[in-house]
């Protein structure tokens, strides 16, 4: 469970995030939808403790990401934007490294890496050096790395960027599975179709602030729009930066 209250973050004169309050429940996929530059990444970065907000707080299963970042990080698996992997390590070594940094014992992290490699259908390239990986292979590696410590909460920043259709299907299947296992999944996207297809709950964000949130049905009802796409357009006021 992720609960953010009144998050505020300025970069110099720019208000990147204004009074953002949102909630992502366990057993749900929550989508953070907004045009590029709306403040999605900054919000996520505050949640996964890489940025410190100027004010407000975020609780990860009750642990403050602001005051106890180390403890909060144990409760989260994170796939940041454009997640880079180490080019001179194999996919498996990339996963094992993060397992070690999460404090897993050697045998435990090896077993977990093998499990994730099977789950994400990575057997074919698991023991190859990551240098020549396709975008899909890189994202799978980064995702396995993020899940190595069995985090109850999973945060993903634009995870489908640059993925081919097959890789997107695998990713969707995995997110669905995480939800069914009771995880809290929060991901950002500027692709309306994707959010509509995947999410149990949507938080619409524009100009650094939350303009609406609820289930897709609630959003349709509230805006009186016939479909989700029209609902988003009415909420944000434009389709600029959306797909």
């Amino acid at each position: 469970m992720i609960e953010a209250t009144h998050l505020q973050k300025n970069f110099g004169p720019v208000e990147a995030v204004r009074n953002v309050t949102l909630r992502a429940r366990d057993g749900c996929i929550t989508g953070l939808l907004g045009p590029n530059g709306a403040g999605k990444s900054t919000t996520l970065r505050i949640l996964y403790t890489v940025l410190v907000p100027d004010s407000g707080d975020a609780l990860i299963d009750g642990t403050s990401a602001v005051r106890e970042p180390l403890a909060a990080r144990r409760l989260m698996g994170v796939l940041p934007h454009g997640a880079g992997v180490y080019p001179n390590l194999t996919a498996r070594e990339n996963i094992l490294y993060f397992g070690a940094l999460h404090g897993l014992e050697r045998r435990e992290r090896q077993a977990r890496a093998a499990e994730l490699i099977q789950l994400l259908e990575m057997e074919e390239f698991a023991d190859r050096i990551a240098k020549g990986f396709s975008q899909g292979q890189r994202v799978k590696t980064a995702l396995a790395r993020a899940l190595v410590h069995r985090p109850p909460n999973v945060l993903l920043d634009e995870p489908t960027n640059g993925l081919d259709v097959m890789a997107v299907r695998t990713l969707r299947r995995l997110l669905g599975r995480l939800r069914d296992e009771g995880h809290c999944v929060l991901f950002s996207s500027h692709v309306m179709q994707e959010v509509g297809a995947l999410c149990d709950a949507v938080v619409v964000i524009a100009h650094g602030t939350v303009v609406a949130s609820g289930t897709p049905e609630e959003l349709r009802e509230r805006t009186g729009a016939g479909n989700l796409e029209d609902a988003f357009v009415r909420l944000i006021g434009t389709t600029e930066g959306l797909e």
Binding site: T49, L70, R73, P80, H81, G84, P87, L101, A146
Partner: peptide
């Protein structure tokens, strides 16, 4: 190099100071 490859941000999300 780590920042340019985009592997710095994931690294900063592990529970290590």
């Amino acid at each position: 190099g780590e920042r340019e490859r985009g592997s710095l941000e994931p690294l900063l999300t592990v529970p290590v100071r």
